[in-house]
Every structure is written in C-alpha cells, then in structure tokens.
Amino acid sequence: MYNFDVEMPGSVADAVSAMGREEAQALGGGQTLIPTLKQRLASPSVLVSLSKISEMKGVCTGEDGALCIGGATVHAAVAKDGFAGLAGLASRIGDPAVRARGTIGGSLANNDPSACYPAAALGCGATIVTNSREIAADDYFQGMFDTALEEGEIITEVRFPVPEVSRYEKFVQPASRFALVGVFVARFSEGVRVAVTGASEDGVFRWAEAEAALSQAFSENAVDGLSVPADGMISDLHGSAAYRAHLVGVMTKRAVANAA
C-alpha cells in the first residue's frame, strides 16, 4: 500500500469536514477498500475512517415503520436485527470475520456489480440518506461501481420499507463466494419488486417483467416462461452471459419459494 494519513472522526460533521481534504477517501469496514489499496488500485492521501461514529451505527424502526440502518452498521448487526429477507442476505455476505467489519454504507457506496446489498436496497425501494440529502434507490445505482454520490458525500443511513415477505437468493461464484447472480424479491401491499445483482454489466437492475407477473400472482409458476435477455450480461470464465441470464430466473423462483 502507498502510505496515507488516517482520520478517525467521532461525528458525521467531523467526517464531512475531513472529507474536504485533498484526495480524501471514506473508509467503511475496509473489507473491499483495504485489499484494493494493497493492490495499489487506489492511492488516497487520507482515509477518513467511519468506524468510530456512533451516530452512524445501529438498526432502528423509524416513524413511518421503515427499518433505519446506520451507514456504518456492520453486516453482523443487520443479520441480527434486519427483517427476514435482509437479515438472510446480511448473514451470507463473505464470512463471519468479514461480517464483523464490513458495513452497509461501504457496500452501497462501492456498488460492486456482484455485491449483495445493492439488490436489497433496490429490491425494497430503500432510501439512501447522506450527510446532505436523501436519494431513492431507483436513482442511486448508476452502473458498475457508479452511484449518485458526489465527491465527499457520506452514506449516513439507509431506510428500508419493510416488505410483507422477502428473500434473497444467490448463486455463489465458487472461488470468491461473491454472487454470480443474486436476486432479491420483496412483496409489498402495492406490488412486488425484483432486483438482480451479479448478472449485468450495468450493475444491479430491476426485472420489470417478473415484478408485473409476481404482483399478479406471487408464486414460482408466475415466473415460468419469463426470461431476461443475455445481452448486456457479464460473461467470464465463471459463467457465460446466457448462463447468468438463465440463473436470474432460477434465483427469482427460489426467492419466491423461500420468501418469509
């Protein structure tokens, strides 16, 4: 790693001010960023650690019934306190040691095309709250590793509308254990949302056709005959575009079958 300064702010206000330093980079749990720094794929001059900001940690229920998760909350805490679909997702990210450090804000800010959390945020229609504004998940994800976040903006909270039932199913890439394809299905009184991660070259996306079908009838059979085009799907040695497109249907069915 190239060397850098480390700032350890104790409040969001101090973190925002530290992010004003030249070439500053926010550090969530570091489970992606630190390996990236070791490979010298990034060279910030200062890392602003968000791990000591207690106002950014924890899970609670907001006035509107939404589940509010602090941006610096680790996966292990969400696995314990999230609703069924979200807790299930968080409990299968990485391994126990990674879940003790990795954070929801870090995952969403990075927007890795194979990360799990983007599927939950988009699949639930969550709101990404930053130090300066609120961003709807539908506007937040803007392609592989790309988000609506501005320079220096920090995710302080993520608000999830709580679905009636939900489930995340992923087909893991056997070496990295990241999602080769992951699908989050959430049923709300106003309809069903389906979000797919791992598959597309544009990152997480909603599968509108399946949403319409599942909103009519929430059963595995509703997805029969539906398919996503292989065009634009990631193709690599772990799976072709056609294979990933096929897995989207399979994972969606499993998620519907196991929704709770």
């Binding site: 570091g30 630190i34 390996p35 070791k38 890392l47 650690s49 126990p96 040691a97």
Partner: peptide, 27 residues
C-alpha cells in the same frame, strides 16, 4: 494470503473475530 481470504490472521477485536490483515492498526 494478506488478501482477507485465508483467515490465518484472525484475532479478536473487542470480542469479535476479524481478519487482522484487513483492518488498519489505527482503527
């Protein structure tokens, strides 16, 4: 591995098992 894959470096930080190769000492 020094890339947070292998777990040989796991220690407990405030009671939690973490991969010490993927945590800054400053933290």
């Amino acid at each position: 591995c020094d890339t947070s894959q292998c777990g040989a470096c796991v220690v407990h930080v405030d009671g939690q098992a973490v991969k010490s190769c993927t945590m800054l000492a400053a933290e």
